[in-house]
Computed example of a mutant assay.
Amino acid sequence: MPRGDLDAPEPLGNDPSGYGWKVLRERTPKLITEVRDRHPYGPEQRRALDALREEIASGPMRPLGEDAPDRARWDRWGAAYFDRPWADAPFLWWESYFYRRLLGAVGFFTPGPWYWVDPFEYWKAAELRDATVAVPAAEERQALLLASLWGNQADLGFLFGAAGDLDASGGLVADDGALVWSALDAGGPHHVGVVADNAGRELLADLLLIDHLLRTGLAVTVTLHLKPHPYYVSDATTADLVACLRRLAAADGEAAAVERRLSEAIGGGRLRLRAHAFSCAPWSYHRMPADLAEEFGGHTLTIMKGDLNYRRLVGDRAWPATTPFAEVTAYFPGPVAALRTLKSDVVTGVDAATLSSLDASGGDWRTGGTHGLIQARL
C-alpha cells in the first residue's frame, strides 16, 4: 500500500549515535564560524552569529526576530519546537530553520549593507572556478546521467563535516538508469522537470544533461527548479545558474556552444526557470502547496537531484532500507526519478542482498558520500 501516512519515525538530533546529532554538534558550529570569519561583518552580525552558535549548543530554540518578514509563517511552523532544545526537533525541520536563522543573523533579509548578499557565495565561486568543464559525446548519455548524480558530491555543507576527499568508490546501491532512458525514449512530447540541488560543479553537470534532453528532442521543454534565496550553503539559486552559464561561455569548444543553446532555450521558453518559496520550507513534499503539485503533475518526468530533495521526496524518516521507492513516492503527482549521492541516513528501495552486503562492509555507506542511487517511479 502507498506510504502516504509516513508511518516511520522521524530522526531527531538528540541521539548521540545518529547522523543528525553529528550535524548539529559538529557541522553547524563549524559553518557559523566559517561564515563569520570569511566576511567583513560588523559587530551586529558577529554578535548575532555568536548568539546563534551558543543557542544551538546550550539554549532553547528561539523564534525569528519581530522584524523578520516571514515571522508569522515560521511562528506557525515552529510552534511545537520553539523554547525546546534544538536537538528535540526533527532533523529536516531544524536543519532548514538553522539556515533561515543564519541568513537572518547576517542581515540577508534586512535592507542595509548586507541585504541579499549571499553568505555562501565565497565557497560557491571558489568551487566553480576549480570546476573542469568536460562535455561527453552525444551518444554517451548514461555518462551525462552519472555526471549529474556524482556531481552531487560537490555539497559544500557536507564538506564542512567531511574528512578527506570524496570519491565514488562505492558505486550505485540502486540503478534505474535504464528505466529513465526508456521512459524518455518512449512516447512524447516530454516536459521534464529538474529540481536542482547544488550550485557549481553539480549544476554544471545538470545543465549538460538538460542541454542533451533539449538538443536531442527527448524533451520539448525542461523546467529547472531553483531556490528563491541561499539555502544549505551550496543550494543553487538563479544567480548561481547565471554564474554557471558564464563559466560555460568562458570555456573552450563545445562547452561554450552548450551555453549558447541553453541561453537561447531560456529566451525561447523551452528552458523554464522556477523558484518556488516551498523549496526553502522545512517540510517534505507531502506538504507541497497545490500550485507546486499542479506543476509537478504537468511534468512527464520530474528529476529530483541530491540528498536533501531525496529526504523531502520520500519523507525524512527511518524507513527500512528495503521499503520500495515506488511505495513511499506514490503520493507524488507524476512520474519521478531521484539522482542522489548518499549523505544522510534515509534510504529506500535497496534490495535485501545489496543491503546485507553494504551493512557487512562496516563502512558509512549511507552518509559518507561514496555511494549513489538512481531510482524511478514511472
Rank of each mutant, 00 (worst) to 15 (best):
D5A: 15
D5G: 15
E10M: 04
P11F: 10
G13C: 01
N14C: 09
D15F: 11
P16V: 14
W21L: 05
T28C: 14
H39G: 03
Y41G: 06
Q45V: 10
R47A: 15
D50M: 02
A51M: 08
A51Q: 14
A51V: 08
R53F: 05
G59W: 00
P63M: 11
G65R: 14
D67T: 13
P69S: 12
D70Q: 15
A72G: 09
A72L: 04
R73M: 14
W74M: 04
R76P: 02
Y81N: 01
P85W: 00
D88H: 07
L92H: 07
L92A: 08
S96R: 05
Y99A: 07
A105I: 05
A105K: 01
P111I: 00
G112E: 14
P119R: 03
A131E: 04
V135W: 09
P136N: 12
L145D: 03
A147S: 15
N152A: 07
D155P: 02
F158N: 07
A162T: 12
G164W: 12
G171W: 15
A174W: 11
L179K: 14
A183T: 04
H190N: 02
G193C: 06
N198C: 00
L203A: 00
L204H: 02
A205G: 08
L207V: 02
L213Y: 09
T216A: 11
A219S: 13
A219K: 03
T221L: 03
T221K: 08
Y232C: 01
V233D: 01
D240F: 04
V242D: 13
A243M: 00
C244M: 04
R246Q: 14
L248Q: 11
L248A: 12
A249S: 15
E254D: 13
A255E: 14
A256K: 05
R261F: 07
A265M: 04
L273A: 09
C280W: 00
A281G: 14
W283Q: 11
M288A: 15
M288I: 11
P289D: 13
A290D: 15
A293D: 15
E295L: 14
H299F: 13
T300C: 03
L313G: 13
L313M: 11
V314P: 10
G315V: 02
D316H: 11
R317K: 06
T323Y: 03
A326P: 01
A326F: 00
V328C: 04
V328W: 04
V328G: 02
A330S: 09
A330K: 10
Y331P: 01
G334N: 03
L339M: 12
K343P: 06
V346D: 12
T348L: 14
G349V: 02
G349K: 08
G349Q: 08
A352W: 08
L355Y: 12
L358F: 09
D359T: 14
G362V: 03
D364C: 04
I374K: 05
A376Q: 00
A376S: 10
R377A: 15
L378M: 06
